[in-house]
């Protein structure tokens, strides 16, 4: 017995060791990003092997927040771009939030039709939806740009969110798979009680799938948050520019020049913070909402 226990605990130790290793590999590049973001761009390459920031400075963060003067920025190897950080942050929050709510909601409706309703041609239509995943964005960007331009929505929030608002094949597919897993009996009981489809969808399916819905919401939010090329095309104006587009200024601006490394890393870390905060709340919620498995 104690033998078996010891073996069990040794196994658990090994399992934990693997998990910790994964966590370390995940985190190390983040340490490196932090190190670079706290370094002076001009001294970065002179000390490639140093594990600490070179010539420690908060200058990069100041540049990202738009509170560094032109002279300060250029002295540390940054560009003198104007950055209205809080406005871009707000734009990112608004567009990502609208995209998340609408996309998840509409995709859930579609997923319900694909998973829980019976109608001729269902699988075929679903597969057609799925094929939308396979169209490279460079081929959708151009026609969509023309569409949005013709709708007169260039440089508006609506233009930025529109292509992502109704569905993505990913969200539909994801939710369908989870809806498929829900036991039929509960639904059938509700039908016997005379419940309509709206009732079943809102009162049964959605609450029972709260964990997957929370998961997909988070993933959609992150995806919307990181979207770069589309908002770059349709949202150049300062009023609607989102964070990723604005912080693109820290990438290489001319063909041979390198990026403003410190600024880029500081921008990346700062831009990730709001989503991390979101996850801190959502993550716990995902854990707390997995009760439905007992329903069966």
């Amino acid at each position: 017995m104690s033998h078996a226990l010891r073996r069990l605990s040794r196994r658990r130790t090994a399992a934990w060791a693997i998990l910790v290793l994964f966590v370390l590999i995940t985190l190390l590049p983040f340490y490196w990003m932090l190190r670079i973001s706290l370094s002076n761009n001009r001294t970065l390459f002179a000390n490639p092997g140093s594990l600490m920031p070179t010539d420690f400075t908060f200058g990069a963060f100041k540049r990202v927040l738009g509170i560094a003067t032109l002279a300060e920025a250029t002295a540390e190897g940054g560009s003198g771009a104007n950055i209205d950080f809080w406005r871009y942050l707000a734009n990112s929050v608004v567009t990502s939030a609208v995209i998340t709510v609408c996309q998840v909601f509409f995709s859930a409706m579609a997923a319900y039709a694909f998973a829980r309703l019976r109608w001729p041609g269902r699988e075929k239509v679903f597969f057609v939806f799925l094929t939308a995943l396979m169209i490279p964005p460079i081929f959708t960007a151009l026609p969509n740009f023309v569409t949005v331009k013709q709708l007169g929505l260039l440089n508006t929030y609506a233009g930025i969110v529109l292509p992502y608002l109704f569905m993505t094949p990913f969200a539909v597919f994801f939710l369908r798979q989870f809806f498929l897993n829900i036991s039929r009996e509960v639904e059938e009981a509700a039908i016997v009680d005379g419940a309509g489809h709206a009732h079943i969808f809102f009162r049964l399916i959605v609450p029972m799938s709260s964990a997957p819905i929370a998961t997909i919401s988070l993933l959609v939010y992150i995806g919307a948050w990181n979207e770069y090329f589309w908002p770059l095309l349709v949202g150049q104006e300062n009023d609607v520019r989102v964070l990723t587009v604005a912080l693109g200024i820290f990438r290489a601006q001319s063909p041979q020049a390198g990026p403003d490394w410190s600024g880029l890393m500081a921008a990346t870390l700062l831009a990730a913070l709001p989503v991390i905060a979101l996850f801190t709340v959502f993550g716990r919620w995902i854990v707390n909402s997995i009760q439905f498995s007992g329903i069966k």
Partner: peptide, 12 residues
């Protein structure tokens, strides 16, 4: 924000 709003923002 709500769905579908936001068209009234920005403008040329």
């Amino acid at each position: 924000a709500g769905c579908g709003s936001g068209d009234d923002s920005g403008g040329g």
